[in-house]
Design a protein around this nucleic acid. Sequence first.
DNA 1: GTGCGCAGAATATGATCAAATTTTTCAGAG
DNA 2: CTCTGAAAAATTTGATCATATTCTGCGCAC
Lengths: 225, 225
Amino acid sequence: MLTNEAVSSVRPLARRPAHQSVYEQLRDLILFGELAPGQAVTIQGLTRDLGAGMTPVREAIRRMTSNGALSMQGNRRVIVPELTESCIEQLEFMRKNLEPELAHRAALRITPAAKDALKACDDALNKAIALGDIRGYLTQNYRFHSGLYAAADAPILLATTDRLWLRFGPSLRVVCGRFGTANLPDKHAELLEALAAGDPDAAARAVVGDVEQGMRQIREALRDI
Amino acid sequence: MLTNEAVSSVRPLARRPAHQSVYEQLRDLILFGELAPGQAVTIQGLTRDLGAGMTPVREAIRRMTSNGALSMQGNRRVIVPELTESCIEQLEFMRKNLEPELAHRAALRITPAAKDALKACDDALNKAIALGDIRGYLTQNYRFHSGLYAAADAPILLATTDRLWLRFGPSLRVVCGRFGTANLPDKHAELLEALAAGDPDAAARAVVGDVEQGMRQIREALRDI
DNA sequence: GTGCGCAGAATATGATCAAATTTTTCAGAG
DNA sequence: CTCTGAAAAATTTGATCATATTCTGCGCAC
């Protein structure tokens, strides 16, 4: 999604700034469950792990705290926040307001090429599920939703939704560790059919179902821990 | 334990980090229309204006771009974004989803002391209107809404709403410059009555009205320019 | 119109200072 | 003698700055 960020395709030869690259690496760490909820994130740790200088790392951490994806304690430590029941409820409320709307708008505008890309993404997702590849599942699932919502041409809704995903990203690994990736009934097929039929309302309904299913699994996984 | 308490109470002026202070100053500049849409924001300009070092300023700017309150161009310039019609539509959609919900929740939980504070805030707001004090009007209006929503005890919804306000903040000065502050029919009184009556639905309706009114004025003001 | 510096701004580094945490030390009670 | 717990040293980490480097935009010669 990355709507706030510079579009590299405008100038593909320009060397990307380090802070940008660090930010994206940190984003992936959070989004795909490489960082555990409650874990401390230190500047010097990231400079070591990512091989970057201190300033770019600081900026990336600041951006992430601003996104709510990291939280700064009263003492100046930064941790990956743990989701409370209240957080989950708020995230579900917002997701159910935003993502169906994005799907609805996307269904009205999506190009055939983008539909094909989504289909390919869903195939890769199913393959990852079959292989028990959690990282692959999380990556493709994000790319699927991200690709769909990008077609809505609504950058502010998109950026806001992205931030929500960053909030529950760290908990997804826990969910997958608990349930595996096998028993997830697939709302994506329903969504792809709605897109093929050009039915925005059906697309929105499919996304509502996907969101409800996802948040229910997060809730249950965190309740058991 | 006791020694730690003693030490921290002896020194109640816990020095706030500069980057935090700079961020808050920058936030106020944006929120209360001190920065015009389209205006360039430079690091060195802010270091001069705010008397801060470069690192804290850089971090504050990064946080703001991450909030969508500033936008970084492909080249490494940072500007205050101008609202398009599409942006306004998205902002209105989100505000009408979020702010009535916050008001509803706040009405269920707000304490009498907080109600009094809101009333005082509304009085100050009306006084600012009477004096034609635009800065005071913007400040009190933000404090009124912010104070109400804080009572909802929903930090994620609150943070998201705050970011929306940052997006249209720079355009408010234009609105006030065009219309003055006199002809704003007051939804706040309606809201205060709903709070006094303990009627969450009425509070939510009042906020819907306030949002519609505010966004309509932004739309009209920007259309005329 | 194209290419070449030049000024200015942004990026990034490492040093330095300050704060917090962890480890060590040590006195005294049991 | 050992164990406990708090004070103090040591270490880790964060915050800030000065400075070097890189990039962009613009003027100017050709």
